[in-house]
Design a protein around this nucleic acid. Structure first.
Lengths: 185, 185
DNA sequence: ATCAATGTGTTGGATATCCAACAGATTCAG
DNA sequence: CTGAATCTGTTGGATATCCAACACATTGAT
């Protein structure tokens, strides 16, 4: 229990389940995916599924979080400072992630997915803010992270709603200077 | 122990190990592949490796057997009679399998590989002979299987040595009528 | 030749996974 | 509606896998 997050069996099993889920998502709608389908594909027992996940919605949440986090980390941990470039690559990562979600799958779970994306954004913004601000006002940083995450997520929605008529970097770039004012330590 | 061959954990673990081994074989020479490499890639513990395989040569043997057997079964279990067509598809399967083996990998283990191929051929020939012969002279069928396996394997070697100048089916086809004489029940 | 580092193979106890069985929910044909 | 079939979640005991530690072999640098 204390080291359940690092036991190789746990990591391996979770990976197998998540990979199978993503695999199946490409073939079926979310509502038609059964837990037995997933465990069969993953070659693990159904009881083991419940050892790791509450239910299939819990899996959806964790799987998407992970995929998204991998995307974000890959882009952001390179220039790990919250400058214009970082904003742009985060925004592009989000839009790519949303493009990658087959609209056929997960229909009816847009709000769940939205929440997941926003939460992950919030986590990453908060981490980066803490890294470059020496202030002790932690609550302030948290609030900034909330605002930025809602803002960037909303921008991605609007960009799609407008028909993606301009490249994402062009869409977000003009707004960045206004955001950056309050960010520098 | 009694059902150790059907426990899903066993099947899954063996698959993971074999897949990792095949994966690594594409990148490194056989002699440079360590058991730690394999178990790391497969996400399983080193001790678990020894639970399933004696050593790395045992793995080589079983992995190749399995790959080969899958190839053979796929081709042969369709027209499951030992006629001209079956001979041809077996011969093609063998030559494809040998082409698939990167010569860079497994150098220095040609004789091991040869033995594995021959043994698998022998098994399959024997199965098919038993299926279509009602004779009780089991020893005779075993001997026929031995001869056919050595013969077909040898033919594949000679075909390669000759520079693969004709398609495999052309190479083997003229010889088949001579083999078929003693096979019919 | 020696020492350090790495690989092989083995073992006993801890734990994740499996199995079989169960009760209840949902679906769907007749 | 009724029953048959399938899915969801849960549980206790069996077993495969993990871990840490060990002895020994092999390799490579100094």
């Amino acid at each position: 229990m204390t080291q359940s997050k690092t036991d190789p069996r746990v990591l391996r099993t979770r990976k197998l389940i998540m990979d199978s889920f993503i695999e199946l998502s490409a073939k079926k709608e979310f509502k038609d995916i059964t837990i037995k389908d997933i465990t069969t594909e993953a070659m693990i027992n159904r009881a083991t599924f419940y050892y790791h996940f509450e239910d299939i919605y819990d899996l959806l949440e964790k799987a998407l979080s992970e995929v998204l986090l991998v995307n974000l980390n890959f882009d952001v941990y390179q220039n790990n400072e919250l400058n214009e470039e970082a904003f742009i690559s985060i925004f592009i990562a989000i839009t790519n992630f949303q493009k990658g979600l087959s609209t056929r799958c997960h229909r009816g779970y847009e709000d769940t997915i939205a929440r997941i994306i926003r939460e992950q954004l919030e986590i990453i913004f908060y981490k980066m803010l803490v890294k470059q601000n020496t202030t002790k006002d932690d609550e302030a940083l948290k609030t900034v992270a909330v605002i930025l995450s809602w803002g960037i997520y909303g921008a991605s929605i609007e960009w799609r709603r407008n028909g993606m008529t301009v490249p994402p970097e062009e869409f977000i770039k003009p707004a960045i200077p206004y955001l950056m004012n309050g960010i520098h330590s």
